[in-house]
Design a protein around this nucleic acid. Structure first.
Lengths: 160, 160
DNA sequence: GCGCATTACTTGGCCGGCCAACATAATGGA
DNA sequence: TCCATTATGTTGGCCGGCCAAGTAATGCGC
């Protein structure tokens, strides 16, 4: 063995493409890229004690300040149960507090703790690093084009 | 209520983009597209009794025939434990059989059942439908460009 | 032949996600 | 006023994924 943090690769042996005659080329590509991307993000975030996905919730809080859980759910487009448990874990990790929302006894107010706030810069660095790795070797034109295309796909897929 | 299969949307309210000054635009886009894509796939596959991800394993088996589990793991680039449990569930669902591999008592041979084989056409149709929805409104040039760009990203992210 | 590293797989634990079912609180109309 | 409807969260269950640790069989060097 070499170091304490073994350099974990996203895909030791990159998944071989299905040569299936027919459709699904882009779909397969999306799935593979997304997984590699998530794994890379997870590896970077692990050093900060976060799991992939949690950083997005923290980012919302950093930007928008204390939020009702319902607002987080709407903002992130996730299932309520997902957010409930995520917030519970972040609270347990000491990064977030949950308090009863004044004026609405159903609601829960979520806000960052000092420890949570302290992570902000590091997480932003991680995301910058992630973005750089993702886009490495792509000229500006291609990046713009990629953004446009992804945006189009998102529109297609979220249009119900 | 309207129908027995309520038209479930990938993202009822599409996640608002983080206007965060700084990096992560493409990373966020990838994450959102991937989730919407997976949800769409899941909705289509549910009708066939499959969960998103399982269809990939079945496709490998359909194309490459009976496989040792180790081969599936290498082909799909997944964690061994993931494949073990996936295959167990597919076996329980009657789509796959697991038998001791002749000549190597460690190994497990996985092959499709008749029921599993019967799903092939439907799954391929689902993937075609998924591909169409994903790429709707994109001219051929853009599709080629998208494929090229995704391929580049994959290279970046799986290059360890 | 013997022993040790490697390979193949399994299990337990955890997280992000989803759906379904539920309890509670707020709101709006008859 | 009171009740039905809606909004807010929570829990249980399930799946795809991951890592870590462990078992069993194979194979290789000596």
């Amino acid at each position: 063995m070499s170091g304490p943090t073994p350099p974990i690769c996203p895909d030791p042996a990159a998944a071989l493409p299905l040569c299936s005659g027919g459709g699904g080329q882009v779909s397969h590509a999306i799935a593979r890229v997304a997984r590699a991307h998530r794994i890379t993000a997870g590896n970077l975030l692990r050093k900060l004690g976060l799991y992939a996905g949690q950083e997005l919730l923290m980012m919302r809080l950093w930007e928008a300040g204390p939020q009702r859980q319902a607002e987080l759910i709407k903002l992130m487009g996730l299932d309520p149960s997902t957010v409930t448990r995520m917030v519970q874990r972040l609270e347990q990790a000491g990064l977030v507090t949950r308090s009863p929302c004044p004026g609405d006894r159903r609601a829960v107010l979520v806000e960052t703790t000092a420890a949570g706030e302290a992570l902000r810069k590091e997480v932003e660095q991680v995301w910058q690093e992630l973005e750089e790795r993702t886009l490495a070797g792509l000229p500006e034109d291609d990046r713009k084009e990629l953004t446009r295309l992804l945006s189009h796909l998102e529109g297609n897929l979220t249009g119900c």
